[in-house]
Amino acid sequence: MSETTNAIDAIAAPVSSPGEKFFPKFEVTPELVAKAQELVALYPEGKEQSAVLPIIHHVQEEFGYVCPEAMPWIAEMCKCTAIHVAGIVTFYPGIHRKCPGKFHFRVCRTIACALSGGEELLPYICSKMGVDPAEMTDEEPMVVSPDGLWSLEAVECLANCGFGPNVMVNDTLHSQVTRGKIDEIMAACKKELAAERKEAAAAKKEAAAARREARAAAAADVTEPEAEEAPAEAPATKKAAAKKPAAKKTATKKK
């Protein structure tokens, strides 16, 4: 909460994070609306509000976090008011109001993991990520590295107490984590990123080629007005953007 925003405005105040560059910007697309409606349909009729959490999860998966603009939209989808969505978003620690990094580390610090050295890992990971451990407070336990690649969050119990310390990286749980293992995980993440970038570059090249082809076709077909070109281009880029988190998911799953 900064000096200028009051406690209420802070609920929907944008929190900038270097992690944003790895995620598409929140945008209400027909696909997103369709997905939300699909989630709403899972619940009995008239109980649209039940879909608040599932939609939040979907938004978070797609866009990295729940940005202020998303909350009124979710409220609209679930037929409730924005303050209810805000009440839920601000309640659950699993819902981010700030964009995490591309690789989000959750380090358990609850009793069993703490006994096996979970808390001692935090400063090490901080130094590896280049973030300041002092920024992690009880109120705001997530920090994002300046390059947006990493984020670190101290969390409570990950329910794998016998095999601590536990660290979750995106969707994957790593147990009995040591400093050495952290190095390995981070190296693997970097490798994954490089592969993804290569893939994205190839996709971009492909898209550019397709565009060039389309333009050539349009030029050949003089009856087609030029204005048509722009909307035709948009879905292609959107698809490329939407691919990113999906690629991330499959990549982490493999491990």
Partner: peptide, 8 residues
């Protein structure tokens, strides 16, 4: 329905 509780 404009008021609610936020935070935890």
């Amino acid at each position: 329905d404009v008021l609610g509780v936020v935070g935890r």
